[in-house]
């Protein structure tokens, strides 16, 4: 989908269910993946992603097209929601084992899918180790590092997502990497 097609789709989605469904289909995986890489928790990724799309639907009429991709707006809502999650849940410390214990569902296929997803996540040991160190950084550093390296975003796009200037992103990235380097030593 090119920028113009996306602009038209977003305008249609403001009062058309199916058009919003198309936007959802287009961006669900991206947003879920981003939240997962920020939180390293399947359960939290589900909750936060749900919240992101509900907020997007609710506030879609306030979205004004300024040449910035719609996905940047979704990423921004996701970043805010993740920050809310971290702020709300500072004493929220538990292991992945505890999370998987808490998963309950009456649908066996859903449960199987969740368990498979947990197992798949745990298989990425290197990522989980990196994530553990990244999560020790301040949120502003976590945001830029994950967007730059795990989401492969350019500085300009990160600036659009976070509402900051490109120069600010560059210096946040520089300082964040320095802090992360010390943590990994």
């Amino acid at each position: 989908m090119n920028v113009e097609q996306e602009r038209v789709l977003v305008e249609r989605a403001k009062d058309n269910t199916e058009a919003f469904g198309e936007l959802y289909d287009q961006y669900y995986s991206q947003i879920f993946g981003y939240v997962l890489k920020r939180t390293a928790s399947i359960e939290v990724a589900q909750d936060v992603t749900s919240e992101v799309f509900f907020k997007a639907l609710k506030n879609l009429r306030q979205f004004r097209w300024r040449g910035v991709p719609f996905s940047s707006w979704l990423y921004r809502i996701a970043t805010n929601e993740i920050a809310n999650y971290f702020t709300k849940s500072k004493p929220w410390q538990f292991s992945l084992e505890e999370v998987s214990n808490s998963i309950s569902s009456s649908d066996p296929s859903t449960e199987t899918e969740l368990l498979q997803a947990e197992a798949e996540l745990r298989r990425h040991e290197e990522f989980l180790t990196l994530h553990e160190n990244i999560s020790k950084l301040q949120l502003k550093y976590q945001e830029v590092i994950v967007l730059r390296f795990f989401e492969d975003k350019q500085l300009k796009e990160i600036g659009e997502i976070l509402g900051k200037r490109e120069g600010t992103i560059k210096s946040l990235l520089h300082r964040g990497l320095e802090k992360l380097r010390k943590l990994t030593e």
Binding site: Y28, S29, F32, G33, L36, K37, I42, Q46, T49, S50, D107, S109, T110, E113, L114, A117, E120, L121, R123, H124, E126, F127, L130, F150
Partner: peptide, 13 residues
């Protein structure tokens, strides 16, 4: 170069 998790949860989606 770190391999990132590419997880899709169709039921949630």
């Amino acid at each position: 170069s770190t391999e990132l998790p590419k997880i899709e949860l169709q039921s949630h989606r």
